[in-house]
Design a protein around this nucleic acid. Sequence first.
DNA 1: CTGTTAGCGCCTTCAG
DNA 2: CTGAAGGCGCTAACAG
Lengths: 333, 333
Amino acid sequence: MKDIAKAADVSPMTVSRVLSGGKNVRPQVREHVERVIAEVGYHRNENARRLRQGERSGLIGVLITNIGNPYYAGMLQGVEQVVAATGRRVMVGLTNEDADLEKQLVLDFLGRQVEGLIVVPVGQDPVRFAPERLGGVPLVLASRSFDGSLADAVLLDDVRGAFEATRRMLEEGHRRIAYLGNRVSVATGRRRLEGFESAHRELGFEPAPDLVRLGQQDADSAERAMDDLLDLADPPTAVFAANNRNSVGVIRSMNRHRAEARRAGVELPTLRLFGFDSFEFADMSPIPLSIVDHDPSELGRIAAKLLFDRLEGESQGAPARLVELPVRLVDFS
Amino acid sequence: MKDIAKAADVSPMTVSRVLSGGKNVRPQVREHVERVIAEVGYHRNENARRLRQGERSGLIGVLITNIGNPYYAGMLQGVEQVVAATGRRVMVGLTNEDADLEKQLVLDFLGRQVEGLIVVPVGQDPVRFAPERLGGVPLVLASRSFDGSLADAVLLDDVRGAFEATRRMLEEGHRRIAYLGNRVSVATGRRRLEGFESAHRELGFEPAPDLVRLGQQDADSAERAMDDLLDLADPPTAVFAANNRNSVGVIRSMNRHRAEARRAGVELPTLRLFGFDSFEFADMSPIPLSIVDHDPSELGRIAAKLLFDRLEGESQGAPARLVELPVRLVDFS
DNA sequence: CTGTTAGCGCCTTCAG
DNA sequence: CTGAAGGCGCTAACAG
């Protein structure tokens, strides 16, 4: 700014005034300063600007496990939409399901003065997100939570979604139902498994322990897990896939097996699939499919709204709020 | 920091030293200061820290048109990977194909002292990215460019990809080939259309003007455009979809038409589809499909590498570089 | 090993 | 309408 001032032969203060709208500056001087600014291609340093006490940084930190998953991409889109509408910007970090990386990113983001954090948490340690560790920066957990969390959170109604889906399968007469999901250390994984199991028990059945496969974080590993299940002596007749990565893997595996069998002259029995989270082409699944569905961008929008509510809304000192978004069962057949 | 200093009864400088690794501080004092820091949950202000001359902000700005498209999500993933490896962070802005929004975001990012920009550009105006407008901040264009650009760019070999795909369709005997793509104001759209047309001409044919549909930016509009084409008196026998959103729309429309016809007792002739960019389940397309394929995260990684090369590598004063990534034709049948 | 000084870029406050 | 002074949070350089 000093350089501009020198070049325009005014004081830095005049340049500052011009950049802030030009109030109290003679039009002539203003135009001159503006010309110099344009020539040099000067941009006011926002970081220095926001150094002043009480100025907010205008940054919201968002930590996501993996944008390769369209689910989180959709969520990010929802968050960005709401954040941008307040004139703020989003800083994105990808934790890649790595707890250490997450911790590091949180510290870095706090150091960069984010006004708030929206996080898809990795792992269970509640200490890392204790309010005093965050230096008072508000936090909203999205899509997952963990025991002992004191933060606002937006979750899906995982338990009910998995419960309803499982009940439907049981009512359709299936007794050998497989479950493919994340590690149980992932909270949504645990909650969905819980719904799966309680539906069995409520209807007087026991889930088959040999059909539960946990720990698949991507479509490839899910596909292999499903290959495994299809090769069992007594394979499942239906599958609950606890997230879209697992659904995709199941469909791929199933399709391959079916094609191979057909080549050998055998027609494989159709498998019934229920999945959590939608994915592109769910409407064209080659096998009967129902989805526990919801809009990830909506989850993102709500997470951002919770955050701003705490930042500038009425809920400033309020206790942690938990929003459980309803899900709906959609049939594609 | 002053507060910490006061609470620990040392000078701010000592606190600063502790935070920078604790060199030249008595272990005893160090521990004490560290305890106070942990108690208060204090985080050093990175922005203030980087205010000093010569300090870099550690921020890379990334402007993407739409992360809802898995293609750009993959690209972002590639960028983030390389950026994070240098200890820097990514600031993301979504331009939503809006040129005004893009301009605003660029200015904002420059103000926030990004060290570099990676942009999927919207529109054609070359002035907005003139180096002097960017105040010397290096820029890499990703996936698209525009006439008169002086910036580094990573593009796909759009022309060749579209050319090869079209030639294949012509060689397979198709003469009524539809083209579904973006607006021509989008550079990739223009380049792909160019390949489509030149393949026709090279083999002695003319593209059918009534089968060219431009301007579909999402799967829904592509689906409607395809509905339209299928209702023609003389419908196409093959389709080239210039991006994955259009491919998805085509498949949806085709599938619906086929199901409707089947209900009416008619078996529709199969349509041959060639698409640009892959998408999930390309391997399970219900109609014969070939894809001009490439890895978007690779494009992102290369864009980031070009940027860092200019930032700290050898290519600092070099003229603009253009990388055209090869594509490959993959058949799913 | 520790503290003081000065300045990074900007703007509020106060004086002309 | 314009400028000078001072301070936001931090640290390099220079005393002690």
